[in-house]
């Protein structure tokens, strides 16, 4: 569909990373500030390519947009406790990977309401936690893990240094060995020439 959208009846074709296309209403799509900036006024010629995101993610994102078409205008972050049953189900249905994909897609499409609710959900995962629990939630390496990693890296670096030193040593030895015949050759040539000159002078 290519017409500039002004009516909610208008449907747009969205193309996912798999190359699949599906319909989204203009009203739902207009919740995306990215879409508004890119296509709303100029129209889209053919499917709108959101090919950084897979079909499942995009469908999930636009499912949210279609649902919130009739909700009041967005007026800033909402506390998790204020979310509707539908909203809660929507988030609870998602596994971790899908949740991350939805956040990323929502952020790219600049859908304020959905991004904000996703952020609130993450914030809720962090509230009341101590530092060690926070580290687990946001999957950061702990200080011990970092220390262990650093030690491993230091060991690796030390081992690599040793290997490099050995290689350099070996190369040096090889060079000496390779140089010997040349030197010998030079010396032999010198000796011959000296002998030759000597023989000339003797003549």
């Amino acid at each position: 569909m290519t017409s500039p959208a002004s009516s909610s009846e208008v449907k747009y074709l969205i193309e996912s990373s798999e190359g699949n296309t599906f319909d989204v209403s203009g009203a739902a799509l207009r919740q995306s500030n990215t879409f508004n900036a890119m296509f709303l006024n100029i129209g889209a010629d053919g499917p709108i390519p959101f090919t950084d995101y897979n079909e499942a993610t995009l469908k999930k994102v636009f499912e949210y947009c279609e649902h919130s078409v009739n909700e009041e205008n967005y007026s800033g972050p909402k506390h998790q406790d204020d979310l509707s049953k539908w909203d809660l189900n929507f988030f609870n249905e998602m596994d971790q990977k899908m949740f991350i994909d939805v956040i990323n897609a929502s952020n790219f499409l600049d859908i304020e309401r959905l991004t904000s609710y996703c952020c609130e959900r993450i914030a809720r995962m962090l509230r009341g936690k101590n530092t060690q629990e926070m580290i687990k939630v946001i999957t950061l390496p702990t200080a011990e893990e970092l220390e262990a990693k650093q030690k491993v890296e230091e060991k690796k670096a030390a081992a690599a240094k040793k290997v490099a030193e050995k290689a350099a040593e070996t190369a040096e030895k090889t060079e000496t060995l390779e140089e010997l015949p040349v030197q010998q050759l030079v010396q032999t040539t010198r000796n011959k020439l000296t002998r030759k000159y000597l023989s000339f002078s003797n003549e």
């Binding site: 991004t115 952020c119 609130e120 993450i122 509230r127 939630v137 946001i138 999957t139």
Partner: peptide, 26 residues
Amino acid sequence: SLSFPKLPSVVQLEVLKQLELQQVFM
């Protein structure tokens, strides 16, 4: 759990804005 450092910066900051300052400190 999720890999927070891999989230877009805008999302990371939005999460921090929704936390109490003492949680931000932690």
